[in-house]
Nucleic acid binder design. Structure first.
Lengths: 211, 211, 211, 211
DNA sequence: CATGAATGAGGCTTCATTCAT
DNA sequence: TATGAATGAAGCCTCATTCAT
C-alpha cells in the first residue's frame, strides 16, 4: 500500500508512453489528440498532465528514450567487434534487428522530427549524430585499413543508414522474408557498396562470431 | 484575351500549389492551415475553394502531380539506355538530380502519405510502384545478364531507392559537395551494392552514351 | 432575336422562382444556398443577382406572389356564393384544393415567416389577415343569420384555417384518399365545428351550385 | 456532496437546453449558432460539447424530451376518463393547456422536424404517432358507441390536432382571451366537428368537473 | 492521481454578395 | 446577362491545457 501511489504513477506513465507511441506512429503526432491517448489508456485527457507536462514533452520523451536505448544497445553490442568489416556487418545486423523490433519508435524518430520544438530538436539531432558517428568510425577505420573503398565517408554513412532504415517502410514480419534473410541481403549490399566484394564479405561472415 | 479569366484561375491555382508545396514541406500537412496557404498567395482562405475542393484534394494534387512528372521524366530519360549497368547508373543519376531539384515535392511524397485518405493513398501507392518497377526491371535484366549479383530483387530495389532518397535528408545545395559529386558517390555505391565493382562500373561509365 | 434578351430575363427569373420554391420547401430557407438555387437552374450563383437583389428578396417575392394569387383566386371564386353556409363550404373546398396544388408555396408561407425581415414580414402578415378576413366575414354573417353557432369569431376562424392548412402535413396525392374525399370530410367537420349539423350541411351541399 | 461536480454538469446541461429551446423557437434552428447558445448560458461555445455531442443532438434532445413529457402527461391525465365524449373534451383541454404552457417546445417540435437527420426524424415521428394514437383511440371508441359521427377517423384526428396546435400561432397570454375561454371555444368546435352537437356537448360539459 | 468542466484559440469549410470581364 | 474569382464573415467543431474537486 505504501508504494502503491508512486508505483502506479510510473506504471501509468509507461502505459501512456506505449499508447502514444503506437498512436503517433499510426496517425502522426499532429493528428493524435491528448484525448485519444488518454482514452487508449482508460483515462481522461487531464490526467495525462500528471505524468507529462504537455504533448510536446511526451513526444520528446519517446524520441529521446528511443535514441538513448539505441545508442546504449549498440555500445554494448559493439564491444564484440574488432575488425572493421566484421563491425560493419555487425552494425548492419544490429540496426536491422533493432529497428525491426521497434518499428513504431523508429518511424516516429524519423517522421516527427519536425514537430519538435527547436531545443528538443537539437537534442535529438545530437543523439542521432552520435549514433551515425558509430558507423562513420567503423567506416573510416576500414577505409584507412584498405578494407573499404569509400568516396566520402559521411555521405556513405548516410547512404547506408538510409538504406537500412528504409526497410521499415516495407518489411512486415510474417511476410515473404525472415529478418535473417533480410539481414543477409543488406549485409551483402552494404559491404558491396563499400567496395568490399563477395570474397571478403564471405570470409568475414564465416569469421564473424570470432573473438 | 478571351480566356483571360480562365487563365487567371489556373494561374492562381498554380500559385496555390507552389505555396502549399513549400508550406507542407516545411511544417507538415497537418500543421499548415488553409489560411496560411491563402495568405502566402495573397488571398482569403475561402478563395482557395474556388480552385481545390478541400485541403486533402490539394495535398493529393501535389503528390499525384509529382509522381506523374517523375514517371514521365524517367520514361523520356530511360530511352537512352540499353545496357542494364548503364541504365542503373542512369537511374541513380536521374533520381538524384530529379529529387534534389524538387526536394519539397519529394519530401511531401514520403512524409504525407499517411495523411492521404484511403482512396488517394491507393492511387499514389500505385504510382510509386510503377516508378519502383522501373528500377526492378533494370535490376532483373542485369541479374539475368550476369551483370549484377542480387540477393532479392524487390528488396534490393527498395534498398537502393531508400539510399538515394535519403540524400534529401542531408543534402543542401551550396554545401560541401556538388550534385555531380554526390552522383559519383552514389553510382559507385549502388553498383557496388549489386556486386558490380569499380572496373565494370568504370567501363560502363565510359561506354554510357553508347547506343 | 430582338426580344430574346429581355424575354429570357423574365423567363430565367421564373425558373429561379420555381427552383427556389422547391428547394426552400424541401430544406428550408436557411439551409438552401444561392449556389444550390443557381445550380438547379443551370447558372452560377452570381447570375441570380441579375434577377433578384438578394436572397431575402427572392423569399419575399415567392411569399408575396403566393398570397396575392391566393387572395385573387378567392376573390374570383367567392363571387359565386351568397348564402354563408354555402360560402363556408366553398371556402373550405377552395382552400383545400388551392393548398393541395401548391403545397410548396403554402409550406413556405407558414414556415419561413420568421426568416422575413421585419418590413417584409409585416407586408405578408397584412396579406394573410386579408385572406383570413374573408373567412371571418363569412362566419360573422352566418352567425348573424343564425346559421352558425360561434363562440368567438376570430378564434374560430383561426381554428378552421389551422385545421384546413394542417392537411398539407399528411396529405399525399395518390394516397388513400382523393382530394374530393378530403374535401367532404373537412366540409362536414368545419360546418360541425360551427354548430351547423349534417342536415343543414347536406341541404347546402345540394344547394351549392346555386348562386 | 460527493457528486458536486456531476451535479454541476447536469445543471449546466439543463441551462443549455433552456437557452437553446428559447433561441431555436425564436430564430429557428438553422439561424442559431452554438456561440449564441453558449453565450446565453455564459459559456464558450466549446463547452457545450461537454454536454451534447453536437448541435443536432441538442435539437433532438429537446424534441424527444418534449414528446416524452407530452405522452407521459397525457397517460397520467387520461386515466380520469371513461366516456369517450368526456375523454375527447379532456384531450382538447389537456392539449391546449399543455401546449400553451410550452409554446417554445411545441413550436420547435413542429417547425424543426425537417432539420432532424433521418434517424432522429424517424424517432420523433414515431413518438408523434403515439400521441396522435391517443386521440384516434378516443375517436374510434366514440364512433363505435355512436357518440361521434366521423367520416374518416385518422383524418379527423389530424384535423383536430392541427386545429388545436394552431392556437400557438396566435394565442398570447394576457391577450383578449384566457386559456379557459379558449378551451371552451375549442371544446365546442372539436365536438361539433365530430357531429357531437350542443346538447350532447353541453351535457358532457356539465358532467365534467365543470363549474 | 483522476475527473469533469471550462477556456480560448484555431481549423476547415460554406456562404451571400460583389465585380471585372 | 452570365461567369469565375474573390471577399469577409461566420459556422461547427476540436484541441491543448487548466483547475476545482
Amino acid at each position: 500500500m505504501a508504494r502503491k501511489t508512486g508505483s502506479n504513477g510510473e506504471l501509468t506513465a509507461e502505459r501512456v508512453r506505449l499508447a502514444a507511441l503506437r498512436l503517433f506512429a499510426d496517425q502522426g503526432y499532429a493528428a493524435v489528440s491528448m484525448r485519444e491517448i488518454a482514452s487508449a489508456v482508460g483515462l481522461q485527457a487531464g490526467a495525462l498532465y500528471n505524468h507529462f507536462p504537455n504533448k510536446q514533452a511526451l513526444l520528446f520523451d519517446l524520441m529521446e528514450g528511443h535514441m538513448l536505448d539505441l545508442i546504449g544497445e549498440w555500445e554494448r553490442e559493439s564491444r564484440r567487434f574488432v575488425d572493421p568489416v566484421a563491425a560493419l556487418e555487425g552494425f548492419v545486423r544490429f540496426h536491422i534487428r533493432y529497428h525491426l523490433t521497434r518499428q513504431d519508435a523508429v518511424f516516429i524518430s524519423y517522421m516527427e522530427l519536425r514537430n519538435l520544438e527547436p531545443e528538443n530538436f537539437a537534442r535529438i539531432e545530437a543523439l542521432r549524430r552520435v549514433y551515425e558517428g558509430f558507423l562513420r568510425k567503423i567506416m573510416s577505420i576500414g577505409k584507412r585499413d584498405g578494407a573499404f573503398r569509400i568516396g566520402d565517408t559521411p555521405v556513405a554513412a548516410m547512404a547506408i543508414i538510409a538504406m537500412l532504415t528504409g526497410i521499415g517502410t516495407w518489411f512486415r514480419s510474417g511476410g515473404r522474408l525472415s529478418v535473417a534473410e533480410v539481414e543477409e541481403i543488406y549485409v551483402q549490399m552494404a559491404l558491396g557498396s563499400l567496395g568490399c566484394g563477395v570474397a571478403r564479405a564471405a570470409r568475414s561472415m564465416l569469421a564473424e562470431p570470432v573473438e
